[in-house]
């Protein structure tokens, strides 16, 4: 079974991922739709956030997140930098976000291209795996929908920058302080990231002849590796 149209695939990627990946295997052009959805939701979410949030409050948050070990001179320099960037913050966030998505997808595409060589029947190109990873990131759209709902329903314009990670391990379970060494890591691990990893595993099963256990190992390996190294660095 496979998705017949790109719009069918958008529903299937959340409800019947295997169908979506089966369809994607033969319809390479669908990747543009996924990219448009991911980037579009990010741009809407970011624009709404920076258009609503109190700029001074954003600066204050960045200042309070500065390391307490900084010297007064370094601190003043950083504060000056924040104030200078104030007007450009939105564009840096959107531009940086878009570049990060593309770079992240490209790295993962390269990784999947390499591991797919272990399957003699796999003949997907780098572009195919790039498309594969974009579709695996589709749960991020729900993250942005959540962000938009939170901004629209907020009773104040003093919005926290942590709103983007509202479904993270830290915000849902741990509640660590911004100065905690594990703060950044646990803010990065979230419901939608894990959902994305799960989609990668399912997609690998669909696109390769890997066994389920192999697909789980190869699908989770990059994220486990990144978070593992991050954890060790935070620990040290």
């Amino acid at each position: 079974m496979k998705s017949a149209t790109v719009f069918g695939a958008i529903t299937d990627i959340f409800l019947s991922p295997t169908k979506a990946f089966n369809g994607l295997k033969e319809a390479k052009g669908w990747s543009w739709t996924a990219l448009a959805f991911i980037l579009g939701s990010m741009i809407v979410g970011m624009s709404l956030f920076y258009g609503t949030a109190d700029p001074q409050f954003l600066i204050d948050q960045q200042i309070s997140a500065l390391s307490p070990d900084l010297s007064a001179q370094e601190r003043d320099g950083a504060i000056q930098g924040f104030e200078m960037m104030q007007g450009m913050m939105q564009w840096f966030a959107i531009g940086g976000g878009a570049v990060a998505i593309i770079v992240y997808t490209a790295i993962f595409a390269l990784y999947f291209l390499l591991i797919s060589k272990m399957d003699p029947e796999s003949n997907q190109s780098f572009g195919d795996w790039f498309s594969f990873n974009l579709w695996a990131q589709m749960p991020a759209i729900f993250n942005w929908i959540g962000v938009i709902i939170l901004i629209v329903t907020a009773g104040t314009d003093q919005l926290s920058l942590t709103i983007f990670n509202f479904a993270s391990l830290n915000q849902l379970v741990l509640g660590l302080d911004v100065h905690s060494p594990f703060y950044a890591l646990t803010e990065n691990i979230g419901v939608f990231a894990i959902w994305g990893i799960a989609l990668s595993v399912i997609g690998l099963r669909s696109w390769t002849n890997f066994s389920t256990s192999k697909a789980v190992i190869f699908g989770t390996l990059p994220s486990v590796l990144i978070w593992g190294i991050w954890f060790i660095i935070a620990l040290v």
Partner: peptide, 24 residues
């Protein structure tokens, strides 16, 4: 599948409600 979808939507809505920004 319908139960899973309803449950997922409920969890998502629950997260959003718990995270709602009310101001002071």
């Amino acid at each position: 599948k319908a139960i899973i979808v309803i449950l997922a939507i409920a969890v998502f809505a629950g997260i959003l409600i718990s995270k709602r920004i009310t101001g002071e």
